[in-house]
Computed example of a mutant assay.
Amino acid sequence: MHDRSASVDWAQYTAFGLRIASELKLPELVRSASEAIEDVVIHEADLTAWSDQLEQANFVMQGERFMFQIPGTAIFAVREGREIEVCPYPGADMDTVRLFLLGSCMGVLLMQRRILPIHGSAVVIGGKAYAFMGESGTGKSTLAAAFRQAGYQMVSDDVIAVKATTSVPVVYPAYPQQKLGLDSLLQLEALQGNKYLHSPKHRLVLTDGHPALPQYGDLRKLTGELNKYAVPIADEFYNEPLPLGGVFELVAEASNRKFLREDELPVVTEQPLNVLGCLHTLLLHTYRRGTISRMGLGEWYFGTAARMARKVEGWRLLRSSSAFTASEIVQRVLELIHKEENSYGSH
């Protein structure tokens, strides 16, 4: 473990079920007052000796250290699930450095600790965490935000940390922030009158002064993310581990099914997933799954996903790509979970 210098002002945080000591300030994370020994250390280091090798490949394995670079931003090294080294390039935007630190680096670190990172959002329903996965643009974060508007707490956005146990898989909370696009913010605003949703406690406003949302308070635009904003969710964040109750795969479907006019199509339809379907969904939506073979974790990865798939319920939700359907999906998800709980209760 890195020898921490007494001259550096180290900050203590918690995220993904881990105690983190960081030389870099990480305002997105929950501060910790605990004096317990940290699980992870994050610090700056000179990694420029690896620049030439990283120019030739996206990733480099150097012993137990997984290294990658983001041109113009930083070189990162993640070691043994316990240490992250950061070498920012001169003039680098530190918001962008933290974006990759809390995303790609944490995804690799979780896998090194044998915790499966799922790409999606998770909310708390009935004392369990439910994961929402899907390709980019299918509405994962927007749906999670709609659940927040409906009074449900959020566990994570972007990276869902899931640990396989002998009983049920456990989800560890990430940190109280969402990434939402401008379109989603506008559409969520339009949902305020929906009977399934309530008004949020706080009003937020875009920092670039977008005229469409003059009633909002300051939101930080995410550098390197096209029209995405950092939305703080401290009041709606659940910061304790939870059992994984189920998985939902979101699929945006064009409204062109044969023999049906568009106005006859259901806005949301669901398909239950069997064990193989759940396994395929977990494998497909693993965060940064392209790095797994490079780290030699293929056998662990498949075995872990298979164990999880046998212990959770799963559904594929098909939504119309021509309409914003978050409120309808919220309603349908709650109905499916309630039906599943009643089904178990009847046995």
Results as ranks from 00 to 15, higher is better:
318 L>V: 10
119 H>K: 11
170 V>D: 03
186 L>V: 13
108 V>S: 14
74 A>G: 08
227 N>D: 15
347 H>C: 10
70 I>C: 08
110 L>N: 01
152 Y>W: 05
195 K>P: 12
87 C>D: 12
292 I>Q: 04
185 L>A: 02
279 L>Q: 06
99 L>M: 15
27 P>L: 15
85 E>D: 12
65 R>I: 07
155 V>T: 12
90 P>G: 04
4 R>L: 15
332 R>K: 14
157 D>Q: 02
250 L>N: 03
219 L>D: 06
25 K>M: 10
88 P>Y: 03
60 V>E: 04
134 G>K: 11
293 S>H: 04
47 L>F: 02
335 E>Q: 14
303 G>S: 13
23 E>V: 07
75 I>Y: 05
14 T>F: 01
309 A>P: 00
31 R>G: 03
224 G>C: 11
130 Y>M: 10
168 V>K: 13
224 G>F: 12
74 A>V: 05
46 D>S: 04
301 Y>Q: 13
126 G>W: 08
57 A>R: 15
271 Q>E: 13
121 S>M: 03
47 L>Y: 05
282 L>R: 03
63 G>R: 09
265 L>T: 09
242 L>I: 05
8 V>I: 13
65 R>M: 13
24 L>R: 04
40 V>A: 01
47 L>M: 11
342 N>F: 01
147 F>W: 09
132 F>Q: 05
113 R>V: 02
299 E>S: 15
188 L>P: 00
70 I>P: 04
120 G>M: 06
65 R>Q: 14
246 G>T: 05
229 Y>T: 05
179 K>T: 10
315 W>V: 11
5 S>P: 02
2 H>E: 12
293 S>N: 10
117 P>Y: 00
101 L>V: 06
183 D>M: 09
331 Q>M: 12
283 L>G: 07
42 I>A: 08
261 R>Y: 10
269 T>S: 14
18 L>T: 01
50 W>S: 13
282 L>A: 06
24 L>F: 00
318 L>M: 14
236 E>W: 11
94 M>G: 07
221 K>W: 00
162 V>Y: 00
325 T>S: 13
70 I>R: 15
77 A>T: 05
118 I>M: 07
223 T>Y: 10
186 L>I: 11
54 L>D: 02
159 V>C: 01
280 H>Q: 15
235 D>Q: 06
18 L>H: 01
347 H>A: 14
171 V>Y: 00
214 P>N: 01
175 Y>W: 07
141 S>L: 06
283 L>I: 13
332 R>M: 07
221 K>G: 09
150 A>C: 07
